[in-house]
Amino acid sequence: GPGLTDLFKTEKAAVKKMAKAIMADPSKADDVYQKWADKGYTLTQLSDFLKSKTRGKYDRVYNGYMTYR
């Protein structure tokens, strides 16, 4: 089956995709945050998933999740 690194890459891609969806349409934020909360994502995990070469690119999404939880 898929190894943990593959799983991480898949999760990371999914999280980034959802983060971009929030940035494009902030009204989606609560739905996405709820999904992440259901998956039990911690802020540390989210921070790892949303690492970007562009500093602060996903800060709004991260901060939103922090206040959501």
Results as ranks from 00 to 15, higher is better:
Lys9Ala: 10
Thr54Lys: 12
Tyr68Ile: 02
Gly56Gln: 05
Ala14Phe: 09
Asp30Phe: 12
Ala14Gln: 13
Lys39Ala: 13
Met23Glu: 03
Thr10Asn: 10
Glu11Ala: 06
Phe49Asp: 01
Ser52Asp: 12
Val61Phe: 02
Leu43Trp: 04
Leu4Asp: 13
Lys28His: 08
Asp30Gly: 10
Asp30Met: 11
Lys9Trp: 10
Lys12Asp: 03
Asn63Pro: 02
Ala19Phe: 02
Tyr62Trp: 08
Tyr65Gln: 00
Met18Trp: 07
Gly1Gln: 13
Ala24Met: 12
Thr67Lys: 15
Val32Asp: 01
Ile22Pro: 00
Asp25His: 05
Lys20Glu: 10
Asp38Trp: 07
Val61Thr: 02
Leu43His: 04
Leu43Phe: 07
Ser27Asp: 08
Tyr65Phe: 06
Met23Ala: 03
Pro26Lys: 05
Thr54Pro: 15
Val15Ala: 05
Leu43Tyr: 06
Asp31Phe: 15
Thr67Pro: 02
Glu11Trp: 05
Arg60Lys: 14
Thr54Val: 11
Thr5Leu: 12
Asp6Lys: 08
Gly56Lys: 05
Asp59Asn: 08
Leu43Thr: 06
Asp6Val: 07
Leu43Val: 07
Asp48Ser: 15
Ala21Phe: 07
Asp59Glu: 11
Thr5Ala: 11
Gly1Thr: 14
Tyr62Ser: 03
Trp36Asn: 00
Thr5Ser: 11
Lys53Ile: 04
Asp59Ile: 09
Met23Trp: 03
Asp38Glu: 14
Ala24Leu: 12
Leu4Val: 14
Ser47Trp: 13
Ser47Phe: 10
Tyr68His: 06
Lys9Val: 07
Lys12Pro: 03
Val15Gln: 00
Arg60Pro: 09
Ala21Met: 13
Ser52Asn: 05
Arg69Ile: 14
Leu50Ser: 00
Asp25Lys: 03
Arg60Asn: 11
Met18Arg: 03
Ala24Cys: 13
Leu7Gly: 12
Lys17Ile: 09
Tyr65Ile: 01
Pro26Val: 05
Phe8Ala: 10
Lys16Leu: 13
Phe8Ser: 08
Met23Lys: 03
Lys57Met: 09
Tyr68Cys: 03
Ser52Phe: 06
Thr42Ile: 03
Asn63Ala: 14
Ala21Val: 09
Asp38Thr: 10
Gln34Arg: 14
Val32Phe: 04
Gly3Arg: 09
Tyr33Leu: 01
Phe8His: 11
Arg55Phe: 09
Asp31Pro: 05
Lys16Cys: 06
Asp59Thr: 09
Tyr58His: 02
Gly3Tyr: 06
Glu11Pro: 03
Val15Ser: 01
Gly40Pro: 06
Phe8Lys: 09
Met66Lys: 14
Leu4Gly: 12
Gly1Ala: 12
Thr42Ser: 10
Arg55Asp: 10
Tyr33Phe: 08
Leu46Arg: 00
Arg60Trp: 13
Leu4Ala: 13
Ser52Ala: 05
Ala29Gln: 06
Lys51Val: 09
Lys20Leu: 10
Leu50Phe: 04
Thr42Lys: 04
Pro26Trp: 14
